[in-house]
Computed example of a mutant assay.
Amino acid sequence: MKLGAALMDAQAVLAAASDSPRLDAELLLGEVLSLSRAQIFSRLHDEIAEADAQRFAALVRRRRRGEPVAYLSGRQGFWTLDLEVTPDVLVPRPETELLVAWALECRPPQGEADVVDLGTGSGAIALALASARPAWRLTASDVSAAALAVARRNARHAGLRIEFAEGSWWAPFAGRTFDLAVANPPYIARHDPHLHALRHEPMLALTDGADGLQALREIVAGAGAHLRPGAWLLVEHGYDQGEAVRALFAAAGFIDIGTRRDLENRERSSGGRRP
């Protein structure tokens, strides 16, 4: 079978299971053959070896059952980074880059700062900030030791220095304060129908098992003891949680409270500044 025919067959298999069947097929075939998409396009008339065809078909079947392409390839692009991802961490998503961009606006481009990323997962946010602001001192925490292992490998691969701490939200940071804090916590409600589509990702990082606001409440309420005067706290949240999250910031005494929208004009990140 030629590469072009293998791609067409895979696209047909994935048509009912993916929003991007062609792209998924190309990425999975590239993973099998260690080729870029451009290289695949230049070799569409080449024959695919039987062993490679079988491996490709197996990956396509797993993708059809809902496994993310990032888990099947073990990699995901985020910001300017190529990150390792495993089922121990969420797949970093483009909308989270909004949080990174906002965080970079909160401090002058030059100068040092102590910055913490709560619930770092793969390390995506912390590493993106560290890569853009070499003078910042980044600390990243997660309650999952397995997730921290992935984040540490990503930091080593990127050649970036991050301090890692294991624990839930502010718990590892008794007596410590920061100039900026960011978090992408679990914010999907327990009964949200979207959870089924995300069933291959770690539930601990997706939902609090309640109304989706529990982690956000804890992060915002505890921030006062860990933020220096004038420091910002920025959090990602669900598209329908903006009003509730802004109320949490107001109740905690934050000022300059605001919300940023994603490319689909949905409220996606909110933040505020300590007086």
Results as ranks from 00 to 15, higher is better:
M1W: 03
K2Q: 11
A5D: 12
A12Q: 13
D24M: 03
E26R: 14
G30S: 06
L33S: 08
S34D: 11
L35H: 08
R37T: 00
D52I: 04
D52L: 00
D52K: 09
A53L: 12
A53F: 02
Q54N: 10
A57D: 10
R63N: 09
R63F: 05
R63H: 08
E67I: 11
Y71D: 02
S73M: 14
R75P: 01
R93W: 00
L99W: 00
V100L: 03
A101F: 03
W102N: 11
W102H: 07
L104H: 07
C106R: 15
R107D: 01
R107M: 11
P108E: 02
P108F: 04
G111C: 08
A113T: 06
A113Y: 01
L118W: 04
T120N: 09
G121S: 09
A126L: 13
L127Q: 01
A128N: 04
L129W: 10
R133N: 13
W136H: 00
W136Y: 01
L138Y: 02
T139H: 06
V143R: 15
A146D: 14
A146N: 14
R156S: 13
H157C: 10
A158T: 03
L160T: 00
S168R: 14
A174R: 15
A174P: 02
G175M: 08
F178I: 14
A181L: 08
P185E: 09
P186C: 09
I188L: 11
A189H: 04
H191P: 00
H191T: 11
H196M: 09
H196T: 12
R199E: 08
R199D: 08
R199S: 15
P202R: 06
L206H: 03
T207C: 10
T207R: 07
D211M: 13
G224K: 10
L227M: 06
H237I: 03
G238N: 06
A244L: 11
A244R: 11
A247V: 03
T259L: 14
R261L: 12
R261I: 07
L263F: 12
E264P: 00
R268D: 06
S270Y: 05
G271Q: 04
R273G: 00
